[in-house]
């Protein structure tokens, strides 16, 4: 299949970027979107042009690196996938595809389609962990946990920190990400010990970094490749109220 790609090119953080159009041809409809990008880059290198910088690592949907905003949607036109899991058969022959980086003040563009997501790491550093003295790992069955809570906690822990929620949100809010990171601990007894301090510090950092606030539009939930739900944001709100009022 043949496509016309409109891709954001930006030399570095300090320069202004612009869209550049690249035609690509003979793309297999069974190839992944990133493989299509590889084909384009090979052709650019052959022509002695600068290849397009884009983030990618595992290419099996678990690392959260591939951060492309394709035709107005993070990770492109499919549900619950990352870009590496997006196939070219989702596009029509001859289609124009617009590829942009995530857009948010706390995610500055480093080069072309790569953004700096250190902001997420900074939020995690503020309390996205539990403090346990070292020693032998305790037997998993020592502390009984209900099946329902264990499942919900696991669902929240499925968050890969890709930032699609921030990219999709009209307010560039990181609430879905933070709510997943809070929920995975809030539901477990081990996480309750530092629960108040955790939510307080992580929200404080989230605000300081300049993410927007949640207006419950649900765009994040719709675009999350791991199916993290808005119920986690409600839990985060409850945790915050408990920390501040309780």
């Amino acid at each position: 299949m043949d496509l016309k790609l409109k891709i954001w090119r930006q030399k570095n953080q300090n320069t202004k970027g612009k869209f550049v159009t690249y035609p690509v041809s003979n793309i297999s409809k069974d190839s992944s979107f990133l493989e299509m990008m590889d084909v384009l880059n090979e052709s650019l290198i052959a022509k002695d042009e600068e290849p397009i910088a884009f983030d990618h690592d595992c290419r099996e949907g678990i690392c959260g690196c591939c951060s492309l905003y394709i035709n107005g949607r993070p990770h492109g036109p499919d549900e619950k996938i990352t870009v590496c899991q997006l196939h070219m058969r989702k596009f029509k022959d001859g289609e124009t595809v617009v590829i942009e980086p995530w857009r948010a003040r706390p995610f500055p563009v480093i080069k072309d389609l790569i953004v700096d997501r250190t902001a997420f790491d900074k939020i995690i550093t503020e309390g996205g962990y539990i403090s346990v003295n070292t020693g032998n790992a305790a037997d998993a069955s020592v502390i009984p946990i209900s099946k329902e809570d264990a499942d919900l906690s696991f669902d929240a822990a499925a968050c890969i920190g890709c930032g699609a929620c921030v990219a999709a949100c009209k307010n560039a809010s990181a609430m879905l990400f933070v709510s997943a990171k809070i929920s995975q601990f809030a539901l477990l007894p081990q996480g309750r010990i530092e629960a108040k301090q955790r939510v307080d510090s992580m929200i404080s950092k989230m605000d300081e970094l300049g993410f927007g606030s949640c207006t419950n539009t649900g765009a994040c939930e719709a675009e999350c490749p791991k199916g993290i739900t808005l119920t986690n944001i409600a839990r985060l709100n409850r945790e915050f109220i408990k920390a501040k009022v309780g």
Partner: peptide, 12 residues
């Protein structure tokens, strides 16, 4: 302020 640069195509 949280999104200083908007998207060219936005399908919300």
């Amino acid at each position: 302020i949280a999104r200083p640069v908007s998207y060219k195509v936005s399908n919300n």
